[in-house]
Amino acid sequence: MDKPAIRLLIFVLTFLLVIILPWYLSVLILITLTIYFPLYLEVLFFGFVFDTLYSYHFSFLHLGLCLATFFLLVVMFVKTKIRI
């Protein structure tokens, strides 16, 4: 199985888990995947899904998306320094 297919399969599986599992387990899985994959842009999509499904604060509706972006940028920066 080639890499894009594996990544797609993991995306679908993660989407199902994000919907079914408690939020803290979903976040743990997303953190692991973000660290494991070289550029895990899908984490932004899952932050977007969290906001869309459960968020209601009209003062700041995009907390999940912003946190996912911040975390992804931090991981990218740290990876350049420690060569994972």
């Binding site: 550029l39 932004l44 999509f45 509706l61 995009h62 990218m76 350049t80």
Partner: peptide
């Protein structure tokens, strides 16, 4: 490295605008 940062920012802006 700049291309990666740019892709993250573009995706973030796209999703933000879509949600907004």
């Amino acid at each position: 490295y700049r291309a990666k940062i740019l892709s993250v920012i573009i995706l973030f802006i796209s999703l933000y605008i879509l949600q907004f």
